[in-house]
């Protein structure tokens, strides 16, 4: 890493430490989302509490990392890329924390869906697929953050549309189910929540990828290009 004027080993290792912790937090969130999707597919209540418990860890990470960031800014007054790293990382932390919330939302809905008797909606596979896609996006975004690879980040951003398409596909199918049999409406609404949460997770993963580009190149790619066009038709992020 090229550094400007600050040239102390301690400082370097502080910066490395912050990034490393964010990536650790990312790993925890990734596992949490996977567990949440698993809960949705299987209705396994034991894993549901696991997801909720992880939430506490994620929150602790967030507080911890924010604290570290404030300390580095206050003590070292970083400039250029180091400053961007701190800024990008602290934004990524917020995204990760939100993803954790979405995961919890998924398990909450999963519990409702699996506890309800009545007609089921056979969309498990579709929801699962879009969930796997979103988690893969997150994993790739974290990899890009670890390798500081803006090219990969760009690919991730361009592939976010895939998850949106999946989401819309699920929505369409749910509508047909609801029209056919109104008894499925409450379950369908809950599945919409789950699908929406997954779609949001994909968006957050995209945000992290954008932060990677910001850290490496110093260009802000948020709300540019595709994003603007999309938000005109969709409800937006």
């Amino acid at each position: 890493m090229p550094h400007s004027e600050h040239f102390s080993k301690q400082y370097d290792s502080d910066l490395e430490d912050v990034r490393s912790r964010v990536l650790q937090m990312g790993g925890v969130v990734e596992a949490q989302i996977l567990a949440a999707i698993e809960c949705f597919s299987s209705g396994d209540t034991e894993r549901m509490t696991e997801v909720t418990d992880t939430e506490l860890r994620v929150n602790a990470y967030e507080v911890d990392i924010d604290d570290l960031c404030v300390h580095i800014v206050a003590r070292r007054q970083p400039a250029a890329r180091d400053l961007r790293l701190i800024m990008g990382v602290s934004k990524a932390v917020t995204d990760l924390e939100r993803m954790g919330d979405e995961a919890e939302k998924i398990t909450r809905m999963a519990r409702l869906i699996h506890e309800r008797k009545g007609p089921q909606i056979p969309l498990q596979a579709e929801v699962r697929r879009s969930g796997d896609l979103a988690v893969a996006q997150l994993r790739r975004a974290l990899d890009a953050m670890a390798r500081l690879d803006p090219d990969e980040a760009e690919r991730i951003i361009s592939e976010d549309a895939l998850i949106d398409t999946e989401f819309r596909g699920i929505l369409r199918q749910l509508i047909t189910f609801m029209m056919e049999d109104p008894r499925t409406i409450s379950t369908a609404l809950e599945i919409i929540w789950v699908a929406k949460a997954i779609e949001r997770i994909g968006d957050h993963a995209k945000n992290i990828a954008e932060q990677v580009i910001y850290i490496v190149r110093g260009t802000d790619v948020r709300h540019t290009g595709k994003e603007r066009r999309r938000s005109a038709t969709d409800e937006g992020a």
Binding site: E16, S20, L23, G26, G27, A31, L142, A146, R147
Partner: peptide, 21 residues
């Protein structure tokens, strides 16, 4: 999921992010 040459010098925990790792 490592990338051999390209990942040399990177912290392993940044790339292998399993919670207990």
């Amino acid at each position: 999921g490592l990338h051999g040459e390209a990942d040399k010098g990177l912290l392993i925990v940044n790339l292998v992010r399993l919670p207990r790792f």
